[in-house]
Amino acid sequence: MIRSELIQKLADENPHLYQRDVERIVNTIFEEITDAMSRGDRVELRGFGAFSVKKRDARTGRNPRTGEAVEVEEKHVPFFKTGKLLRDRLNGK
């Protein structure tokens, strides 16, 4: 399922809403999650999962082609942990 299909399904369930509003609803949800993580916040959606930010320490990396050492700066990466309910549902529980 891609973003537009998700929008379509939600629109089909809500015939009283304008298509453009359904688009804004879906876009707002994902935008809000990304914004939160860019501020370093967590987003916890019980039953679905939690989005958080993990810190990766600075390290000396290597250019795999030349073997040359490169300094990699400390950085923050997005992380998702599946919620218990969804994990159980994936396994037919």
């Binding site: 949800i29 809000e32 999650i33 501020r39 370093g40 916040d41 967590r42 987003v43 916890e44 019980r46």
Partner: peptide, 10 residues
């Protein structure tokens, strides 16, 4: 800011 957002914030 280390806050936690929930469904309510969305």
């Amino acid at each position: 800011s280390d806050k936690t957002l929930t469904r309510m914030d969305l």
